[in-house]
């Protein structure tokens, strides 16, 4: 315990506590925001997008990784599965983007008592999340529409719409439901909530070393996202292969469905691995260069 380096290493059960805490609370808040109707003033949507202050606060006060993952899972479970709205792959994308954003926000804060730091971290978290969401949405249209560039006006309009939503969410939800409540809550809870979980509060020295945290983990997160983008692109190329599939069926019979699905899954995994390796090499090279 006295060893300074080991101070912020949590036991397995403490991680689980942070995880459960974050999951249940953010899940609950999600269920509440799902029930709140939206308001429109012209094209401006004044909806309570999410109570991001809950995961932000917990990421700042506790271990950001477990708080972030817990919150994302809470959203999926309470806000989707339990309301009968689980969306399949779409949830995966939200899960990764949100966890990553909250995690980064949590690591940015060194001193939970410093309101400026907390505020900046909250806004950065929201911006990262909304930016990733916007990019993914644009990517979807890009993948979904054949030769997007050739369709007049569409590319511009999708960028414009996403850009608008990005600003709307960052300025409205970001300030009202992330910045203000987080700045209000963090100093109040600091030193009070940690003992309830049998932990010592974070101190100035307990920060995560930038190299350790922002280094590999951020990169892995980035790679994952990039990999998904590439996966879509790659799959779009395979479209032509469906043509000969029919012949195979005639030749081999019904069990082919399993093989075909198995092969598809296998290819997908291999692609992921290869792409992430390549990307990792690239990044490592980049790091060396810089």
């Amino acid at each position: 315990m006295s060893n300074l380096e080991n101070r912020f290493i949590l036991t397995q059960s403490q991680k689980m506590m942070v995880f459960i805490l974050s999951m249940s609370l953010y899940g609950l808040s999600n269920m509440i925001t799902e029930l709140v109707p939206e308001f429109y003033i012209g094209p401006i949507e004044l909806s309570v997008e999410y109570f991001a202050f809950i995961p932000l606060t917990l990421c700042i006060l506790f271990h950001p990784l477990y708080a972030a993952i817990g919150a994302s899972l809470g959203e999926v479970i309470f806000g989707e599965i339990m309301l009968g709205q689980f969306g399949g792959f779409g949830e995966l994308e939200k899960f990764i983007a949100f966890s990553l954003a909250m995690y980064v926000a949590g690591t940015l804060v060194r001193d939970p008592k410093n309101k400026l730091q907390v505020g900046i971290a909250a806004m950065v978290g929201i911006i990262i999340h909304q930016a990733i969401s916007a990019i993914v949405d644009i990517l979807k249209v890009w993948v979904g529409v054949e030769e997007l560039e050739a369709v007049p006006g569409l590319a511009e309009s999708i960028v414009a719409i996403e850009g608008f939503y990005f600003l709307n969410d960052v300025l409205f939800s970001g300030i009202l439901f992330a910045l203000l409540p987080t700045v209000y809550l963090v100093p109040r809870l600091y030193g009070k909530i940690e003992p309830l979980l049998g932990m010592k509060p974070r101190t100035r020295d307990d920060r995560y070393s930038l190299k350790e945290i922002v280094g590999p983990r951020l990169i892995v997160g980035g790679i994952l996202l990039a990999a998904f983008a590439f996966l879509f692109e790659f799959l779009s190329e395979t479209e032509f292969n469906w043509e000969w599939e029919a012949d195979f069926v005639e030749m081999f019979g019904d069990w082919f469905v399993f093989i075909s699905i198995g092969v598809a899954a296998f290819i997908a995994i291999i692609t992921l691995v290869v792409l992430s390796n390549r990307k990792k090499n690239n990044t490592q090279k980049d790091e060396k260069v810089s």
Binding site: G153, L154, S157
Partner: peptide, 11 residues
């Protein structure tokens, strides 16, 4: 919005 950016019925 696409129409604003010069889209037409081809969109």
């Amino acid at each position: 919005i696409a129409l604003f950016f010069g889209g037409n019925w081809a969109t």
